[in-house]
Simulated scan of single mutants.
Amino acid sequence: MRALSAKVSSLLAEAYDALDPNGNITIKWDVLQWTPDGYVAVVTMYNFQKYRRIQSPGWTLGWTWAKKEVIWSMLGAQTTEQGDCSKFKGNVPHCCQKNPAVVDLLPGTPYNQQIAHCCKGGVMSSWAQDPANAVSSFQVSVGAAGTTNKTVRVPKNITLKAPGPGYTCGPVKIVRPTVFLSADKRRFTQALSKFLPQLFSE
């Protein structure tokens, strides 16, 4: 099992904060299970900037699929457009766009559409000020994708848009998979694959 990682650097010089020169936003993409035509992943963002919060209207996370992937379903977030899914009959994907743009769901979202750390309208506190609210997550079920570590392809051109200066993503790298501790703290499991973008203020 493996994990994937990417470094992301700030797109605009105005993002630089002299009081927090190493502040970053880290995005963790954990593949939790394989499906007949792809995988299910949990994407988690950590705002490790000391002072810069992401304020309303919140973050928008985007990327370009490496192949012809589609998003079958999501929890805790949604794409802003479905795209052209006309070739699918019966079970229609949530999104067929080559370059999906994902936004957080709003507070008050029904529980069956939520996961942990979602549904805050894309608003994130900074880690130094409020670490419990400096995390945002969503789950995505990806189809028409690889179904093993050898055949899965990581998204390209990862971007994060938020109020203020924007960000852009660097090369994706393979890193160790995340290890999870069960709620009763008696069992460890690990992701099947992971990549980890970091967005640095410059």
Rank of each mutant, 00 (worst) to 15 (best):
A132V: 04
K50W: 03
I71T: 06
L196D: 15
V92P: 15
Q113Y: 09
V43H: 07
A128D: 07
Q190S: 14
A101E: 12
A18P: 11
I174N: 14
R176M: 05
G143W: 01
L199K: 08
G58E: 11
K194E: 12
T109D: 08
C96G: 08
I25V: 15
D37W: 14
K7I: 03
T35D: 13
V103G: 10
N22E: 15
E202W: 02
K120D: 08
D84T: 04
A145D: 11
G122H: 04
Q114M: 10
A6C: 13
S5Q: 03
K67C: 02
F48P: 04
Q33E: 13
H94F: 07
M1H: 06
K173E: 11
P100I: 06
P197N: 07
A15I: 09
V70D: 03
K28G: 10
S137T: 05
K161H: 08
Y167E: 02
A132W: 01
A132K: 10
P100V: 03
D184V: 11
W127D: 02
P57K: 01
Y46Q: 01
K194P: 15
Q55N: 08
K156L: 07
S193K: 12
F200N: 08
A128V: 05
S10H: 07
P165R: 01
V70K: 00
V135M: 06
K194V: 14
Q198W: 10
Q33T: 15
I174T: 06
G58I: 11
Y167W: 03
K120H: 14
Q139E: 09
S136H: 04
N133A: 02
A128L: 04
Y16L: 14
P165K: 00
V43G: 11
G58K: 02
A183T: 13
W65D: 00
L75K: 06
Y51Q: 06
T151W: 01
A162T: 07
F180S: 08
P177F: 06
S125T: 13
T151M: 02
Q55R: 01
W63I: 02
G146L: 05
